[in-house]
Design a protein around this nucleic acid. Structure first.
Lengths: 344, 344
DNA sequence: CTCTATACTGCACACGTGTGCATGGGTCAT
DNA sequence: ATGACCCATGCACACGTGTGCAGTATAGAG
């Protein structure tokens, strides 16, 4: 069983030269006589030689690999972000090491350690939140890191980030509902993505306050935190809506599109019509949002750009360029799930 | 700038022993005196040592990394499969190198070469089709490979696969429609996933034939093949349906759920009611299928299991066990998009 | 013909880890 | 006291690649 693949040493023997010569020849070095160079390349090709990236990584400093942590592959938001990352990575011949954390802090630490062991050049993290020991460890091992949608308060200099503006997005959503004439507006959030939920909720509260509306605690529901990876936002949304109805809200702003879809399904069960009886606004603008009935009014996040910019930022860091964290704007997309309240 | 991280050599100097002793101590070798062993482990911990997996990979034969090729991250089917793979991989401390091929044969070859350069232990391919040079190269470099949903006709011994039974699934879908009383049943397929489309189409044709129904070529539409990565099945479905209507079909069997969703949207535009005016059956049973209105009757594919089994199969191959390709059953899920035809 | 400059190639080491073999020192029995 | 034996450790090489430096051969110049 000839399991071992051909090395430059093998080529060297076949060509009657030293492995150094082969190495240089394959790199088109001027040091090697053109005819020899060509002959060696010919032999290498015939022997089906493929350079061993592991050895190259050991020798050089770069592995041309970056680690990617996301919370779930099933999450369509993450999917689009990863795609943005992947496109830039591929163009720069960088390989992607993918890991999924399911929002588990322990698992997250373990993933970082694995990335470190593998000596990735950098890490992009699109997880829900950065925690103390996590940040500390990242700083200790000096691993270049870019965070997506975490709006870390620049705790450490090493941490760069690219975010979409949750707060402003939430404000747009609620302002849209206010403009339609709604006064009693509910909020359905999630408990396991603390930071982003807090920002969107803050945008919701502040916008209502600005309009002179006191937020009623009964209008707000946050899905309980569960570590169950099978946790499903749609089901949560579906379960939470009925609790909200007795309060008389005429519109609901949801943490994301999945929650909003859950609301749609609950409405269908209850015989409520959207948007006639209830207006619904989602967040993210995933594909799903435009496929459901009625198509969701939502806040569009530039998912591909978030990923692409994060990847480019990481590349810049690796080249020693100075980079600056960025915040991208979100954008309201009005579809058919919102309308003036029934009374008007 | 102390960019280099600590090595066992550094620990050896700090402990006043040789690097061999450190290596053995960290592996809890009996050869090292317990007190020395413990002291070395202590020092290693204090210095923040993390073993260099690159060097370990170079020395040993395994990299504990596998390459994963999929056609698109946005594809919800692929997402679930990847998740099944990831769970098993994580449990076995295997890292995943993710690449996306966008159905581009050239890109696919390039990805395989990259995986080979990186000396991954094996490859799982969930791309649309295996082509000649691709197979040839895989055989040449003897890289253990498991294919998902490609039903390769065991062209090479090295190629193993795990599939869901497309043909039987398609038969179930069409039989369901026949039982409801439909006689004129359309098929909407895709052009860029040749193999699976062919199998599902064959199931469609044979089932109709068995029922004594001659398939009318007008009932069938295949979305044109485009290399545009932005190609979107939903849009294709939406575009194809109107061409089908003049033929008087009362039901449509779609290649996958996205096509079916496109059909739903087209019906909405045209004022057709589903299932009263038209019955629609999808394929895959992605999350989306149960969220649209009406929820789709579809063929459920065991996506997580496909991924998990593929990964386990690859692990078995790596351990030298004999493995056998498998075909899993699909299963009809009846929801609300199918009903007896209008006439009845 | 001899000296020098130049073009080309090999030697040897490095990257970080793992391991067979030899070696050193100690213990024990004769 | 001496030999046999065992335990703990170090030496040296290996994995595959890249590169500074030294060395050789050839050509060109005087």
């Amino acid at each position: 069983m000839n399991r071992r693949s051909v090395s430059i040493q093998d080529i060297a023997e076949a060509a009657g030269v030293s492995h150094s010569t082969v190495s240089r020849a394959l790199h088109d070095s001027d040091l090697i006589r053109p005819e020899v160079r060509q002959r060696i390349q010919q032999i290498a090709h015939e022997m089906g030689y493929t350079p061993n990236a592991v050895a190259q990584s050991l020798k050089g400093q770069r592995t041309n690999t970056i680690g990617l942590v996301i919370t779930s592959i099933a999450d369509p938001f993450a999917g689009r972000v990863v795609r943005g990352i992947e496109e830039i990575a591929q163009a720069n011949r960088i390989s992607l090491l993918l890991s999924v954390s399911y929002n588990d802090p322990e698992l997250e630490m373990e993933i970082i350690e694995t990335f470190h062991r593998r000596r990735v050049d950098g890490v992009i993290s699109a997880t829900a939140q950065i925690r103390g020991p996590y940040v500390e460890r990242l700083a200790q091992i000096k691993m270049p890191t870019v965070l997506i949608n975490q709006q870390a308060e620049s705790e450490a200099d090493r941490l760069h980030s690219v975010d979409a503006d949750d707060y402003a997005g939430a404000r747009q959503a609620v302002e849209h509902l206010l403009e339609l004439g709604h006064r009693k507006i509910g909020y359905l959030g999630v408990g396991n993505r603390v930071q982003s939920n807090r920002r969107r909720f803050a945008g919701y509260c502040d916008t209502l306050s600005s309009a002179g509306i006191a937020v009623d605690a009964q209008w707000v529901r946050i899905a309980p935190t569960v570590n169950n990876p099978r946790a499903d936002d749609v089901l949560d949304g579906q379960a939470m809506l009925p609790e909200l109805l007795p309060t008389g809200v005429t519109a609901v702003f949801c943490y994301n599109d999945q929650i909003a879809v859950g609301v749609l399904m609950a409405c269908r069960e209850l015989g409520l019509r959207v948007p006639e009886h209830l207006s619904v606004v989602g967040y993210d603008d995933v594909d799903l949002a435009s496929y459901v009935t009625p198509p969701l009014t939502t806040i569009h996040q530039p998912k591909l750009r978030l990923g692409a910019i994060a990847m480019q930022m990481l590349l810049d860091i690796l080249e020693g360029k100075a980079v600056q964290s960025r915040i991208l704007p979100n954008e309201l997309v009005v579809r058919a799930s919102t309308a003036p309240p029934a009374g008007q």
